[in-house]
Simulated scan of single mutants.
Amino acid sequence: MAETFGLDYVIDIPFADKFNQDVGNKVYLDHDMYETIVFNLCSNALKHTWNGRVTIRLYIDYKDKKKMIVLEVSDTG
């Protein structure tokens, strides 16, 4: 879809082995709900961006000294 609209589409997700090693703990989530949320975020980013870029990033960050996994979907639309 991004190619059809002439958008830059950047996916910045670490390799699974490295990411799992960095996370260290088990992550519990509802896979179906997570898939629905990610699909919706990506779909909206593509739908509302007329030119520019859509970026998807997955990374580890810290808040109040607690490790968290961040999924970031951003666009220039």
Rank of each mutant, 00 (worst) to 15 (best):
E3D: 14
E3A: 15
E3I: 13
T4C: 10
G6H: 06
Y9D: 08
Y9R: 08
Y9S: 08
V10E: 14
V10P: 06
V10F: 15
I11W: 02
I11F: 04
D12K: 15
D12R: 15
D12P: 07
I13C: 00
I13Q: 00
I13E: 03
P14N: 05
P14C: 02
F15R: 12
F15N: 13
F15A: 14
F15T: 06
F15E: 15
F15C: 06
A16C: 06
D17E: 12
D17K: 05
D17F: 02
D17M: 08
K18L: 09
F19P: 07
F19D: 03
F19L: 14
Q21I: 08
D22P: 07
D22T: 03
V23W: 03
V23H: 06
V23A: 04
G24N: 04
G24R: 07
N25G: 04
K26W: 09
K26I: 08
K26V: 03
V27R: 12
Y28G: 07
Y28H: 04
L29D: 09
L29A: 09
L29G: 09
D30H: 10
D30P: 02
D30N: 15
D32Q: 14
M33D: 13
Y34I: 06
Y34G: 00
E35M: 13
T36P: 03
I37S: 01
F39H: 11
F39M: 08
L41H: 01
S43F: 12
S43C: 05
S43R: 14
S43G: 07
N44R: 09
N44P: 00
A45K: 12
L46C: 01
L46N: 01
K47W: 00
H48K: 11
H48A: 01
H48I: 01
T49V: 05
W50G: 15
N51Q: 13
N51I: 05
N51E: 13
N51H: 11
G52F: 02
V54R: 02
V54P: 00
T55G: 04
T55P: 03
T55H: 05
I56G: 00
R57D: 06
L58F: 07
Y59E: 13
Y59D: 03
I60C: 03
I60L: 15
I60H: 00
Y62I: 10
K63L: 10
K63Q: 13
D64K: 12
D64P: 01
K65T: 14
K66W: 07
K66P: 02
K66L: 09
K67G: 08
K67N: 06
K67E: 13
M68K: 14
M68D: 07
I69E: 00
I69A: 00
L71C: 05
E72H: 00
V73K: 01
S74I: 11
D75V: 02
D75L: 01
T76A: 10
G77A: 05
G77R: 11
G77W: 08
